[in-house]
Design a protein around this nucleic acid. Sequence first.
RNA 1: CGGGGCGUAGCUCAGUCUGGUAGAGCGCACGGUUCGGGACCGUGAGGCCGGUGGUUCAAGUCCACUCGCCCCGACCA
Length: 574
Amino acid sequence: MRWTQTFIHTLRQDPSDAEVVSHRLMTRAALISKVAAGIYNYLPLGLRSMSKLQAIIREEMERAGSAELAMPAIQPAELWQESGRWFEYGPELLRMNDRHERDFCFGPTHEEVITDMVRRTVTSYRQLPVNLFQIQTKFRDEIRPRFGLMRGREFVMKDAYTFHADAEDLDKAYRAMEKAYCRIFERCGLGYTQVEADTGNIGGSESHEFMVLADTGEDAILSCPDCHYGANVEKAEAGPVPSAPDWPLDRSDRPKSVHTPEMRTVEEVATFLGISPAHLIKTLIFETDEDFVAVLIRGDLEVNEIKLKNELGCTHLQLASEAKIEEITGGSQGFSGPVGLEGVRIVSDPSVMALEVAATGANAADAHLIGVEPGRDFEPSMVVEIRLATAGDPCPSCGKDLVEKRGIEVGHIFKLGTKYSEKMDCRFQDADGNDQPMIMGCYGLGVGRTVAAAVEQNHDDKGIIWPLPLAPFEVVLVVLNADKPAVVEAADSLYVQLIEAGIDVLFDDRPERPGVKFNDMDLIGFPVRVVLGGRGLEAGEVEVSLRSDGEKRATPIAQMVPAVQALLVQLRSQ
RNA sequence: CGGGGCGUAGCUCAGUCUGGUAGAGCGCACGGUUCGGGACCGUGAGGCCGGUGGUUCAAGUCCACUCGCCCCGACCA
């Protein structure tokens, strides 16, 4: 491809709305351009990178036994009503009507459509398993789209679905997918880690996320420096906590109220009372699907809302509003406590029950209670492990201290079980003639997000440094002095040689000044560069270099193609 | 959804407080000089100052509404 025949218009200045490196560079390098919040054009260069990733995905999915199909972007409401998600999904689901006022949505995922398709066709265990994937544009009306392709509203995703007669067979497919994902990210040259994940509202029994490690990642993960354990903080098991220091104040037969004007935070109250944050019982009022719950956690610890949600078995969970807190507790926010609290369930973390003496809010304005003894002064309706794990907690598999890292979630695989097959009546007859729901798995991989993650992980202050497999072009041929016919003629010939050698090359044939061309070449980040100018031509040489090291290798013109090929081989073997 | 900010040339932004002929840099076009790491000189094109309504002799500037975009928050009291 010639530069003058494609559409590459780089930006000299940073776009005003780009925050993270990948968004900034992908915009400046003319890979993407914004159409609306969270909605982008994939420009020719960006599309090439996306296509290359898609080709890798296709190969690996097929290797893992999955067949490609394509499902519609627009889906009828009926299917979503059947699964119940029409009502559960909320405003993230983009809904629309056709001219007959029938309800549709733009698919954010395709469990409903594929389950419907499979149930119409598959009736016997002899037809199982089924393993299908698609690469498709999806839409999720995110609360706050940001970071370019990292959290867009419209995005390209590979999603696969499997259907099985039994759990062992699902496990087999799950392991194959796991392996396929590892191969995909390895082939892309990305540093990634696989972590245990929560299954979220989508449901299911086992789940892993694939995270590309990057400081700008939106997810916190805990991993073990020694063994292979890694988990999303939402999922990570919290180890035992060190017990609180000795209670520094007097003990009494019953809690004593103290005046704590405007002391709302744990820090403030602890300092004011002269106790440790670990002596406080933090009391949070949550709103669930049907009621309100008071949740107790030791003052120096945090609640894992995902664990709490799972323990409560609810789908909706959020902190109650200020007004509700006052209605329920009689005190304002920051002054809630379990003592004498009535009308709501009280859920406590074991860390609270382990306290001998504690302090907590008095459910009254500007007052806290001291000398509170869990079990004597209040009795929770439920004691469950709901603490958020943090760095320093012991690894569940080997006991070492876990460390926290940040990552970009690029893949997520689930064992769904029968959640959708039961609701949507997707059943089969087993060998004994019994009617059973199929057991399902689903496997997502963000295509745009993976490309963005690659940029996030591979760049310098000049621009992108593409890993070879995802580069829009593997090689760029740059002609300087494009006003001199002899140089142009020589460059044309080099271009033809590269094309004939089957090399993936972009020919920068623009009549631009050298500085402009060099800067664009660095910004876009083609892995291998071939530069020919008047000076070189006279010496019978071209300059071959790598984006990654910048070292210029003067090469006889006749040796250009083999020199480029050698560098490509070198890059491939890295 | 709450808080904050911003919409002025293709891009990045001044000008708005204090109302009075629409600005800069980059980019673009033309001419010239340059030509191996974002050149220089000259000439020029390019704006319903996001939209609607109001105040005023007069609005990019003040007021109201509205649309769009960005940031923070929406979880630890």
